[in-house]
Amino acid sequence: MSAVVGGAKKQREQYGTVTSPAGKLGRFIINLFAAGGLLYLFLPIFVIVAFSFNQPVGRFNAVWNRFTFDNWLHPFADQALVDALLLSLKVALLSTAVATVIGTFMAIGLVRYRFKGGGLVNFLLVLPLTAPEIVLGASLLTLFLAPTMLLFNISFSLGFATIVIAHIMFLVSYVALTVRARLRGFDWTLEDAAMDLGANPTRTFWRVTLPLITPGILAAALLSFALSIDDFIITYFVSGPSTTTFPVRIFGQSRTATPPQINVLSTMILLVSISILAIGTLVSARRTKRDSA
């Protein structure tokens, strides 16, 4: 079996290996385009990293002046920016935790059971993903500004709570759909096997189901965290005047100044993310190797 798969893989890699000069030229051109595309993707990143070593002229770090290590020696010099980053981390942790739990519940409910109304739930789940962020932000703001009778006039004051509420709202659909995609093809009869062997439903869930679906949940949680920490438009609408996340701070400040610490902190975030990605890739590569051995 594995030999067949390996053979198919090998053949796939060879697709497009043609000998005619026209084919070779086509192959070269498409490779060139792809390389150009990757370069385009990285161009701003090079600029961000390079400008973290720039000694800016005036308040804007937009024109190259001269090389310096000063910014890296004082990465936390801009206290307001650091506070905003810490707030963003707090928002991302809390909203990811809540959204991952209730989104995973939804995914399990949808994949594991056949019931009336499943199609409707699916529709309700997908629709928020097709709504433009500006509409999500604007509509939440109207809810927070003008509490309706429908909700017993519960009023919200804009701040930490409303940001977390908004983030959980747009993350739930992402989590539910990501976990659902991973759960399809899950062998539910394993649960029956566990129960036949005498495990009760709770034990079955903790010992059999959860360990098997954990990779999917983890992927959804990482995606949520990244989406939450990066979100600007929705947060900008619901954050109010006194609560400032990292992106909101950058936007507000960019009118009057762009301190080089923005670049330093971004480069740090980038390095941390790349490390997490690299470790994840290595671990999963090792696991595949072990499983196939």
């Binding site: 519940f105 019931f115 739930v121 309700l124 999500l136 809810l143 909700l151 709202m169 659909s173």
Partner: peptide
């Protein structure tokens, strides 16, 4: 998939309530 009437809704309700309250109602 198992045929069930109430269990799936128990799993779906928290997420659905959140979406209704903070997406559909807005």
């Amino acid at each position: 998939r198992k045929q069930a009437r109430y269990t799936p809704w128990l799993l779906l309700v928290p997420g659905l309530l959140w979406l209704i309250w903070f997406f559909y109602l807005p």
